[in-house]
């Protein structure tokens, strides 16, 4: 692992910097990538394979980061629309933002419609009938979307639990 780090860290960070145009983000993501390798170690047949793997993983991390930024921007927009004197505390803001980002990340694997049905149903505690009316689908479909999205999230949750 140490050798892998020495051999490839600077290269990966450079690659990320070119991609993100930002040294601090690049350093963070490179660190993340190696942290993941540390948690689930794997063996490589040679430097090219290791770099291919690292690049693929780092690419995924870039997409994640980018999505988190999208959610953050939308959240800041929503907050800006509120009167300052009644805004939630900054701690609450941070918690809600983190929650939104995590949920967004968890729901990447399913259709936008299923994701939206799930978020409305669970986040807003709307009934199937209300969600169905909102999305213009049948209540049966909403039920299916919710079960599907829940299963996906459960699988991710279980996966994370195993990784600890």
């Amino acid at each position: 692992m140490e050798a892998l780090y020495c051999d490839h860290h600077d290269w990966l960070q450079g690659w990320l910097r070119r991609r993100l145009g930002n040294a601090a983000d690049a350093a963070d993501l490179a660190h993340d990538a190696f942290l993941r390798l540390l948690v689930t170690p794997r063996r490589f047949d040679g430097p090219p394979e290791a770099r291919l793997y690292l690049r693929t993983m780092a690419n995924g991390l870039c997409v994640d980061l980018w999505r988190r930024r999208q959610v953050e921007a939308a959240w800041l927009e929503a907050l800006a629309a509120q009167p300052e004197s009644f805004a939630p505390s900054s701690e609450q803001q941070a918690i809600v933002l983190q929650t939104l980002q995590d949920i967004d990340a968890m729901l990447q694997g399913i259709s936008p419609k299923a994701a939206r049905a799930f978020v409305l149903a669970v986040g807003c505690e709307m009934t199937d009938k209300e969600v169905a009316a909102e999305l213009g689908v049948s209540t049966r479909m909403v039920r299916k979307y919710v079960a599907q999205a829940m299963l996906l999230c459960m699988q991710m949750e279980a996966h994370h639990n195993v990784r600890g």
Partner: peptide
Amino acid sequence: PIQSSVDPRSTVEVL
């Protein structure tokens, strides 16, 4: 945190 935010509806609209 979303369910107990000031308004869950507008919070999920962020997504």
